[in-house]
Amino acid sequence: MKTPLLELRNFTVLRSGKKVVKNFNLLLEEGEKAVLAGPNGVGKTSLAEAVLGFLPFEGELLYRGRPVRTKEDFKLLRRKVGFVFQNPDDQLFMPTVREELAFAPANFGLSPAEVNRRVEAAAALLGLEELLDEPTFSLSFGQRRLVSIACVLTAEPELLILDEPTNGLDRENWLRVARFLNETEKTVLVITHDRDLVTFLGWRVVLLSGTPLASSWRTEIPDPYQCD
């Protein structure tokens, strides 16, 4: 049997001493794409933060079958797992889009040529070529969202976790993000409560609330492609 890429066993997340997620189990195979859904406040973001080592947890976190526990383990894990924050403004801080995209590969000590190759590739993938030399803070929210995804892609992560990637986007940018998610060959976990996105992607849905998935999540929302 193949070892899963990410596995959570009886995963309980603690925030300020309170258990915000209790005994959660998740198994994500390499190359698999899944949606972690649930209403506001059930702990979806906290779960992702704990997986990245930013919040304490109880239970087991395994990456490629190996337990992740120590500070060093999490440092290594963060090289392999790309995380796109819910709010791009919490993620972006470099002066230009190019520097933002180059930040991760430069931290990994890659050569300037390789950094540049990754920057160009990620920008091309999300249609950001024209914006590379623009100041990050002068961009629209939708553009900042795309930059926040691109700047994670330049790290070439094995697993991509995106927290509410379509929040606050207009239809054009919504479609760009949704199409990117559908087309990428990476292992992806999308955290969302956007029913349109869940319907559009048609991936396995893991619910965090513990209640069964409402049928409306799959049937009531029209295909956004048809809205063009």
């Binding site: 990245l52 930013f54 919490d90 991760a104």
Partner: peptide, 16 residues
């Protein structure tokens, strides 16, 4: 809190 978020964002992208 905002500063912590930015620091996390940097750590997520390999900043040490």
């Amino acid at each position: 809190d905002e500063y912590e978020k930015l620091k996390r964002a940097a750590a997520c992208r390999g900043f040490e």
